[in-house]
Design a protein around this nucleic acid. Structure first.
Lengths: 340, 340
DNA sequence: GCTGGCACTCTGTCCGCGCGAGTGCCAGGA
DNA sequence: TCCTGGCACTCGCGCGGACAGAGTGCCAGC
């Protein structure tokens, strides 16, 4: 139907106009700025239908229309066209991320880059430990009863924990233990390794068993625990930019939710690699995000995501641009981590 | 002189009143709320003098007075009395910080605690590497030409770098190298160790020399470099709370400066342990901090600070309370790091 | 040297009004 | 059947004036 088709073009125009001007958009402005081929009166009729169907709303009588969450959702799913990054942006990504010296640095640069590209708040999750493979395990005796365990993963992440052991851990005992554990764990993913711990303890020489048990337990219980996953946040200054406009009064809970990390981590848990996910306004479970949109994607080289990254901004955001930026950055970070 | 004495009491009252109400304070309110023993008219005379001397100012004619930076400075230096923490606060500190599993966790908890106690933005610096002693050096061969160097300090900090070596690094060569480097560096502070590197290379067996040189260079050049020092920031939501009031329009540059870290790190470089330092408004070099005050102190067990921590807030802040909180937290963190 | 009184100044706020933008509806035309 | 121009209506926003309140500086008296 020519009907429906035009209505969708009207919806798209409303979203685009509102995103760029932040003013409720009226029929006349629409007719003037977008070549819809019909008069304002006709557009008004279409807008009335769109409003009835819940895609747009008016803040008050005799103001223009504003997209609803449902309107944005439709726009994202059906109306937005992928916006390829400019050559300058691609170059910026490479320039920014190359030259990182370690994982912390990579993620720090990534979050700054994303914030700069999208002009939104950016979040980057540390590579999940449970899906990373163990590259090396190091043990350092601190005191006779305390052992520092350092875990190095193939994604460059380094984690350490102090383990209390009741048996005394002498230098050569520790060396034995190190050899044993490295033989058992190196190259394995922590998630896989967890099933074999029982066997490992049984097969160990008797004098090492308590040590093996203690260290393994620490590794699996505290390190695989996804709640420990960390988040790097950047670009909160972008929130202050248009914060008063886009988040009237909800800025503080939003910042609190970001610092809390839990909320965002839960979102990240759902992401798949290369499949950009968008949560719009009220679609977010958490109250503080109900007036924000979150664009996330997983990164990683293989089929499974090592972690997620994305941006958080007002529902009134440039979805096409942000989705493109998020995906491009995730892809590059994936390569970077794979080759290191 | 009874004169001067009363004038100072007036200044103190103005600061206290303005900090708690955020309203320019007039002579009448002052006379009503503080027992100064004189009439509003007299207070007005004193205020005129204080204004002439630059301690207070009025936003516009016929408004109350507001302290200037100079006024706050005088208040901090001479008028504020140390406000001991409540028992509940002391308990909160212990409860909050005990149970931290590693350094990252300690600092994360510290920053949240500080932000909660002071209701300001909190910053905590990672322990400076150059003043930490080396506990252990670990080497992990990645490929024949790449070596992962992991440095563990006595403050629990773990740092890693990938070193490119042109000679090939086989397992037993690496083992030799590990022994050699640990013998040389363990127990030493990195700053001290830097002077001996030349000797170390000379004394090494010839086949190890290029490796020793490469690894040592990396350690000293990149790890001792203070610019790499990291900062944990928290409580930015507190900025949003009264941000619009206290930082009209300057909130974004402030957030940017905090994320930039450089500005704050420069401030931290000056701190001494147990000596709380306050930078008020325009006293800060950086533009973005010119309407903010920063309360900092060093933490560490010995005579020299391992790092700094503090809070950033509006010049209109509870200096006495924040200084007490910052000092108490720093002391506790110092103990915590010393015993681990 | 302090105090009460007084005139003055200035801001923040409230109210009323007109303007403009935008809408919904309707009758006419393709 | 659908689009279009016209028209009356609604409502928020901005502007200007009036007003109340807070605060000051100054002065004469104690």
């Amino acid at each position: 139907m020519a009907h429906d088709d035009r209505r969708l073009r009207v919806l798209r125009a409303i979203v685009q106009d509102y995103v760029s001007t932040n003013d409720p958009v009226g029929s006349k402005a629409l007719a003037a700025r977008y070549d819809l081929g019909v008069s304002p009166a006709t557009i008004r009729n279409d807008m009335a239908v769109l409003e009835e169907e819940g895609y747009i709303t008016q803040p008050h009588t005799s103001a223009g229309r504003v997209p609803t969450d449902k309107g944005y959702r439709f726009f994202v799913d059906r109306l937005s066209t992928v916006k390829p990054l400019s050559a300058a942006e691609r170059r910026a990504i490479e320039k920014f991320l190359d030259g990182a010296v370690d994982l912390h640095d990579v993620l720090g640069r990534t979050v700054r880059l994303l914030a700069q590209l999208t002009r939104q708040v950016a979040v980057v999750q540390y590579p999940t430990l449970s899906r990373s493979a163990v590259r090396h395990l190091e043990l350092v005796p601190l005191t006779p009863s305390r052992l520092l365990v350092v875990l190095i993963t193939d994604t460059g992440r380094v984690e350490q924990r102090v383990v209390e052991v009741h048996g005394d851990a002498e230098a050569d005992t520790v060396a034995e233990l190190r050899t044993l554990l490295n033989a058992a764990f190196t190259g394995k993913k922590l998630a896989e390794a967890s099933v074999e711990v029982g066997d490992l303890v049984d097969q160990a020489p008797p004098h090492l068993r308590p040590l093996v048990a203690a260290v393994s337990a620490t590794l699996l219980e505290t390190l695989v625990e996804p709640s420990e996953d960390r988040l790097v946040i950047g670009g909160t200054a972008n929130l202050a930019r248009s914060g008063a406009l886009d988040f009237p009064g909800t800025m503080r809970p939003l910042l609190e939710a970001l610092e809390e990390q839990v909320v965002v981590l839960r979102l990240m848990a759902e992401v798949g690699p290369s499949q950009v996910t968008v949560h719009i306004g009220g679609e977010n479970e958490h109250e503080a995000l109900s007036s924000a949109s979150v664009v996330t994607v997983g990164y990683g080289s293989g089929d499974q995501a090592l972690g997620g990254l994305g941006v958080v901004g007002p529902t009134r955001m440039d979805y096409a641009g942000n989705m493109a930026a998020v995906r491009a950055v995730a892809r590059y970070v994936g390569h970077l981590l794979a080759e290191s």
